[in-house]
């Protein structure tokens, strides 16, 4: 198992390398010039050129990429072209909101979606099943910002129950922290609930048709026992896979959700950096996101063996 994990982690290196090279080339080829943005409206072409030189942006591709890679290997993500702060600091300041948002979304999604999926499978073919599945396909179809605005309109502006924007860190108290996160998490979670409920239902249906479930039933195991212990455990694999894949979906979703709810997280940092051409920040954040994605995939594979001992790593 340990050697498997080590091998897998080593295998991420080429993937990360490709991501790094891809993003760097993309930014290099891109139009847009941070020096021109820094210089502002009154600048002359000459002033822009001077700023560009002072930022090292006039260097050839190989030199810039080499320099950046050298930094990365030494654990240094570089500094922002604009604020001059270390990229690692800027990322660290933004992790709490994004991570909290993702974790809460995940929790909401799992606690809602799995029971929904199980019930749909149990009541298969009835109106309950249909209602749940209609909800699921709807959740999959309505864009996250539309859900976000609807929620903010209803709960924030009409009933004034929850704040419509911002983020309160956990250090300021649990309830205020939760208050600012509920609407964004629900908005972001809608699609995730839809997805997981569908997967759970499908996996449950397959398992419920298997012989050993019938056997369990025949042996008098209660309905709940059959559903939640025997069947769900065996239906877990596809659910875990999709939950893991869904992390990518969450990362993308945070970009939009954070923007709509004015949460100072990684998503807004990234979009802003892209628009300002703050190259080191873009590269840093994309590397982080990609690494997270790869890591989550690894965890998913490890969970397979937990849920299904037949799978050897």
């Amino acid at each position: 198992m340990l050697s498997y994990i080590v091998r897998r982690l080593l295998a991420t290196i080429p993937v990360m390398g490709i991501v790094a090279l891809f993003v760097f080339s993309l930014l290099y080829l891109a139009p847009g010039d941070p020096a021109a943005i820094i210089a502002g409206d009154q600048a002359t072409v000459e002033q822009i050129a001077k700023i560009r030189a002072s930022l090292g942006l006039d260097q050839p591709f190989v030199v810039r990429f080499g320099h950046w890679l050298w930094q990365i290997v030494h654990g240094n993500l570089g500094t922002s072209v604009f604020t001059g702060q270390p990229v690692s600091t800027m990322i660290a300041e933004r992790i709490e909101p994004t991570l909290s948002l993702m974790v809460l979304t995940m929790l909401i999604a799992l606690t809602l979606a799995i029971p929904l999926g199980v019930i749909a499978a149990w009541k298969h073919g009835t109106w309950i099943d249909r209602a749940i599945m209609i909800f699921a396909v709807l959740g999959f179809s309505v864009p996250v910002f539309v859900v976000a605005y609807l929620l903010a309109y209803v709960f924030g502006l009409t009933f004034r129950l929850l704040p419509v924007q911002g983020f309160t860190p956990l250090a300021k108290g649990f309830w205020p922290f939760l208050g600012t996160l509920v609407l964004p998490s629900l908005a972001l979670g809608a699609i995730y609930v839809a997805l997981l409920a569908r997967i759970t239902r499908a996996a449950m249906l397959e398992v419920l048709a298997q012989d050993y479930v019938r056997t369990a039933r025949a042996k008098g195991v209660g309905q709940g026992g059959v559903l939640f212990v025997h069947a769900l455990k065996n239906a877990a694999n596809p659910v875990v896979t999709v939950a893991g894949l869904g992390v990518a979906l969450l990362i993308g979703g945070t970009v939009v959700t954070e923007t709509v709810f004015a949460i100072p997280g990684l998503g807004t940092l990234t979009v802003n950096a892209i628009l300002e051409r703050d190259y080191p920040v873009i590269q840093g954040v994309v590397l982080l996101f990609s690494f997270t994605y790869v890591l989550v995939n690894l965890i998913v594979d490890l969970l397979y063996s937990v849920f299904d001992p037949r799978i050897r790593l």
Partner: peptide, 18 residues
């Protein structure tokens, strides 16, 4: 520099004050 009211240009809210 222009005021960028573009969505996502920057975020941080009143509550983020805290």
């Amino acid at each position: 520099m222009k005021r960028r009211t573009l969505l996502g240009a920057v975020a941080g809210g009143a509550a983020a004050a805290a």
